[in-house]
């Protein structure tokens, strides 16, 4: 049974696209068939972060409007054959997405894949609501920072009221992914801690992704961090988060760099 997962946050720039790519690649590497779908019409970036920007011919809107078949628009990742991307349009405006068209495409994707991961645009407007409408599960990407936490709270409210599941009287399965976390600053009480954010938002924790250079390095070269630097701290956090999404019960820990001799040697090579 396919799972539709929306990666959302309300606030922009907190790591939705990075997390979509990283979680998608992590799930795909475990052998499951995964498609990542960019819903950010007009400001598409998932293709760029995944390194597929020069392979885009047709996009989500072409498929929604019936100008292209789904199979023509899907791009298969060159590094991981169980991973595909459905890009957004860069030129059209977001009103080109119709609710009926999106519903049809989502049904078709559910038949082809084990995971359909929707990268939501920022905001709480129509685009974000279309991205979350069909979701069975939601990953709410939050930075330990006041505006991000507030916006996440709004998005949780929308997930509980404006989704198909909510309309049917069911609940979208919500998970918190705390990104750009700095354990040292949280320890010095200069940053909201994991416990603070969990207490405020009260949804289960999927993972803690530390602030890391590896994330930018990976997007520079157009690869999800779970493909480009699988041994890095953020990648390990995403791999564990992906296992939790698949139903494994794993303790969430704050990721910290071990400073052993072998790690030092390893880092040299990386």
């Amino acid at each position: 049974m396919a799972k539709v997962l929306v990666v959302t946050s309300g606030k922009g720039g907190v790591g939705k696209t990075t997390s979509t790519a990283a979680l998608g690649a992590a799930l795909a590497q475990s052998g499951q068939n995964v498609v990542v779908v960019d819903f950010d019409v007009g400001l598409r970036n998932l293709d760029l972060v995944m390194g597929a920007e020069r392979r885009v011919v047709f996009d989500l809107i072409n498929v929604v409007q019936g100008d292209a078949r789904l199979s023509q628009a899907l791009i298969r990742d060159k590094r991981c054959e169980t991973l595909s991307i459905l890009p957004a349009s860069q030129t059209r405006d977001k009103d080109a997405l119709t609710s009926e068209g999106v519903a049809r495409v989502m049904d078709e994707l559910r038949e082809k894949f084990d995971w359909v991961i929707c990268d939501s645009p920022a905001g709480i407007e129509r685009g974000a609501q279309l991205a979350m409408y069909h979701a069975d599960m939601a990953v709410i990407v939050t930075n330990p920072e006041v505006s991000s936490v507030r916006d996440s709270d709004r998005i949780i409210g929308l997930l509980d009221s404006k989704t198909k599941k909510a309309e049917q009287g069911e609940k979208v399965d919500k998970h918190l992914l705390l990104t750009r976390y700095d354990p040292a600053r949280a320890a010095r009480k200069e940053m909201l801690s994991v416990e603070d954010v969990l207490e405020i938002l009260s949804i289960p924790l999927l993972g803690i992704v530390p602030e890391s250079e590896d994330v930018l390095k990976s997007s520079n070269v157009g690869a999800p961090v779970t493909l480009a630097a699988p041994a890095s701290l953020p990648a390990r956090a995403y791999f564990e988060a992906a296992r939790r999404l698949s139903g494994e019960k794993l303790e969430v820990s704050v990721p910290v760099e071990k400073r052993g001799f072998f790690d030092w040697l390893f880092k040299r090579d990386a």
Partner: peptide
């Protein structure tokens, strides 16, 4: 951080 938490 506790100011942030209280305000939120």
């Amino acid at each position: 951080s506790s100011v942030a938490k209280d305000r939120l």
